[in-house]
Simulated scan of single mutants.
Amino acid sequence: MRQDIGDNITAMYGLEAAMPKPQGNQSDPILQEYLRREDEWQDIEKLKKKVVFVQERISCIHNDKERAVLNRILDGMSLRAVSRQMGLSHTHVRNIRDSIVSQFTEFPKSANFPKQTGLKKEVSSG
Protein backbone atom coordinates (compact mmCIF):
# COMPACT_ATOMS: atom_id res chain seq x y z
CA MET A 1 0.00 0.00 0.00
CA ARG A 2 2.90 2.35 0.64
CA GLN A 3 3.81 2.31 -3.04
CA ASP A 4 0.22 3.23 -3.98
CA ILE A 5 0.05 6.13 -1.53
CA GLY A 6 3.52 7.53 -2.03
CA ASP A 7 5.11 10.36 -0.11
CA ASN A 8 3.92 13.24 -2.28
CA ILE A 9 0.18 13.05 -2.48
CA THR A 10 -0.55 16.55 -3.81
CA ALA A 11 1.16 18.21 -6.70
CA MET A 12 2.21 21.87 -6.38
CA TYR A 13 1.85 24.43 -9.15
CA GLY A 14 2.87 28.03 -9.71
CA LEU A 15 4.56 30.00 -6.92
CA GLU A 16 3.83 27.26 -4.40
CA ALA A 17 6.09 24.89 -6.31
CA ALA A 18 9.01 27.34 -6.09
CA MET A 19 8.71 27.83 -2.31
CA PRO A 20 11.00 25.93 0.05
CA LYS A 21 9.69 22.56 1.16
CA PRO A 22 9.38 21.64 4.87
CA GLN A 23 12.06 19.30 6.21
CA GLY A 24 11.50 16.49 8.69
CA ASN A 25 8.39 14.39 9.30
CA GLN A 26 5.67 13.71 6.77
CA SER A 27 2.94 16.32 6.99
CA ASP A 28 0.14 14.02 5.83
CA PRO A 29 -1.68 12.83 8.99
CA ILE A 30 -3.43 9.97 7.18
CA LEU A 31 -0.14 8.57 5.92
CA GLN A 32 1.36 8.89 9.40
CA GLU A 33 -1.57 7.00 10.94
CA TYR A 34 -1.32 4.30 8.27
CA LEU A 35 2.40 3.84 8.93
CA ARG A 36 1.82 3.66 12.70
CA ARG A 37 -0.89 1.03 12.34
CA GLU A 38 1.16 -1.00 9.86
CA ASP A 39 4.01 -1.26 12.37
CA GLU A 40 1.54 -2.22 15.11
CA TRP A 41 0.01 -4.98 12.97
CA GLN A 42 3.44 -6.41 12.22
CA ASP A 43 4.17 -6.59 15.96
CA ILE A 44 0.81 -8.29 16.59
CA GLU A 45 1.50 -10.87 13.87
CA LYS A 46 4.87 -11.73 15.43
CA LEU A 47 3.24 -12.13 18.84
CA LYS A 48 0.45 -14.27 17.36
CA LYS A 49 3.02 -16.64 15.84
CA LYS A 50 4.73 -17.03 19.23
CA VAL A 51 1.43 -17.76 21.00
CA VAL A 52 0.42 -20.34 18.40
CA PHE A 53 3.87 -21.97 18.72
CA VAL A 54 3.37 -22.40 22.49
CA GLN A 55 -0.23 -23.56 22.13
CA GLU A 56 0.75 -26.22 19.59
CA ARG A 57 3.36 -27.67 21.94
CA ILE A 58 1.84 -27.19 25.40
CA SER A 59 0.65 -30.81 25.51
CA CYS A 60 4.25 -32.07 25.64
CA ILE A 61 4.67 -30.75 29.21
CA HIS A 62 3.74 -33.61 31.57
CA ASN A 63 5.60 -32.64 34.75
CA ASP A 64 3.29 -30.84 37.21
CA LYS A 65 5.98 -28.43 38.37
CA GLU A 66 6.92 -27.52 34.78
CA ARG A 67 3.25 -27.02 33.89
CA ALA A 68 2.74 -24.77 36.95
CA VAL A 69 5.77 -22.66 35.99
CA LEU A 70 4.63 -22.48 32.36
CA ASN A 71 1.11 -21.38 33.35
CA ARG A 72 2.49 -18.62 35.55
CA ILE A 73 4.84 -17.43 32.82
CA LEU A 74 1.94 -17.43 30.35
CA ASP A 75 -0.02 -15.35 32.88
CA GLY A 76 2.71 -12.74 32.57
CA MET A 77 4.58 -13.33 35.81
CA SER A 78 8.32 -12.75 35.92
CA LEU A 79 10.64 -15.61 36.85
CA ARG A 80 11.37 -13.93 40.19
CA ALA A 81 7.65 -13.64 40.98
CA VAL A 82 7.15 -17.31 40.04
CA SER A 83 10.03 -18.32 42.28
CA ARG A 84 8.61 -16.34 45.21
CA GLN A 85 5.11 -17.72 44.72
CA MET A 86 6.21 -21.34 44.36
CA GLY A 87 8.91 -21.19 47.03
CA LEU A 88 11.70 -22.12 44.62
CA SER A 89 14.99 -20.44 43.89
CA HIS A 90 15.21 -18.12 40.89
CA THR A 91 17.89 -20.37 39.39
CA HIS A 92 15.66 -23.44 39.74
CA VAL A 93 12.74 -21.68 38.04
CA ARG A 94 15.07 -20.57 35.24
CA ASN A 95 16.25 -24.19 34.80
CA ILE A 96 12.63 -25.34 34.64
CA ARG A 97 11.90 -22.69 32.01
CA ASP A 98 14.93 -23.82 29.99
CA SER A 99 13.69 -27.41 30.23
CA ILE A 100 10.27 -26.34 28.93
CA VAL A 101 11.85 -24.49 26.02
CA SER A 102 14.01 -27.49 25.10
CA GLN A 103 10.93 -29.72 25.16
CA PHE A 104 9.11 -27.27 22.90
CA THR A 105 11.93 -27.28 20.35
CA GLU A 106 12.17 -31.10 20.34
CA PHE A 107 8.42 -31.71 20.19
CA PRO A 108 6.60 -31.51 16.83
CA LYS A 109 3.38 -29.56 16.85
CA SER A 110 0.39 -31.38 18.26
CA ALA A 111 -1.62 -33.47 15.81
CA ASN A 112 -4.94 -32.59 17.44
CA PHE A 113 -4.42 -28.84 17.09
CA PRO A 114 -6.82 -27.28 14.54
CA LYS A 115 -4.89 -25.91 11.56
CA GLN A 116 -7.62 -23.63 10.19
CA THR A 117 -7.84 -20.99 12.91
CA GLY A 118 -4.50 -21.28 14.66
CA LEU A 119 -6.33 -21.32 18.02
CA LYS A 120 -7.75 -24.12 20.13
CA LYS A 121 -11.49 -24.54 20.00
CA GLU A 122 -13.27 -23.77 23.25
CA VAL A 123 -15.70 -26.35 24.58
CA SER A 124 -18.95 -24.86 25.80
CA SER A 125 -20.24 -26.20 29.09
CA GLY A 126 -23.85 -25.36 28.31
Rank of each mutant, 00 (worst) to 15 (best):
K48M: 14
K48P: 01
K48C: 09
K48W: 08
K49V: 06
K49N: 12
K50S: 10
K50L: 13
K50D: 07
K50H: 13
V51Q: 09
V52M: 06
V52S: 03
F53H: 07
F53S: 01
F53Q: 00
V54D: 02
V54Q: 02
V54Y: 06
V54F: 04
Q55P: 00
Q55L: 12
Q55D: 11
Q55R: 07
Q55V: 00
E56N: 05
E56W: 02
R57C: 03
R57Y: 02
I58L: 11
I58N: 02
S59Q: 07
S59T: 07
S59H: 09
C60A: 14
C60M: 11
C60D: 04
I61C: 02
I61H: 01
I61P: 00
I61F: 04
H62N: 12
N63Q: 12
N63C: 14
N63R: 09
D64M: 12
D64Q: 14
K65I: 14
K65H: 10
E66D: 10
E66A: 10
E66S: 11
R67G: 01
R67E: 13
R67D: 12
A68E: 15
A68Q: 13
A68S: 13
V69P: 00
V69F: 10
V69I: 14
V69M: 12
L70I: 06
N71I: 09
N71K: 15
N71F: 10
N71R: 14
N71C: 13
N71Q: 14
N71A: 14
R72Y: 09
I73S: 13
I73T: 14
L74T: 11
L74I: 13
D75R: 15
D75Y: 12
G76F: 13
G76N: 09
M77Q: 15
M77P: 00
S78N: 04
S78P: 00
S78L: 08
L79F: 03
L79I: 08
L79R: 07
R80N: 05
R80V: 02
R80D: 02
R80C: 02
A81H: 01
A81D: 04
A81F: 00
A81N: 02
A81V: 00
V82A: 06
V82D: 02
V82Q: 03
V82E: 05
S83D: 01
S83E: 04
S83T: 01
R84T: 03
R84N: 09
R84P: 00
Q85E: 13
Q85P: 00
Q85I: 03
M86Q: 15
M86R: 15
M86F: 07
M86E: 14
G87L: 12
G87E: 09
G87H: 10
L88P: 02
L88W: 04
S89F: 11
S89L: 11
S89V: 10
S89K: 10
S89T: 15
S89A: 13
S89D: 12
H90T: 04
H90M: 05
H90G: 01
H90W: 08
T91E: 06
T91D: 07
T91A: 10
T91K: 05
H92E: 07
H92K: 10
H92C: 06
V93Q: 02
V93Y: 02
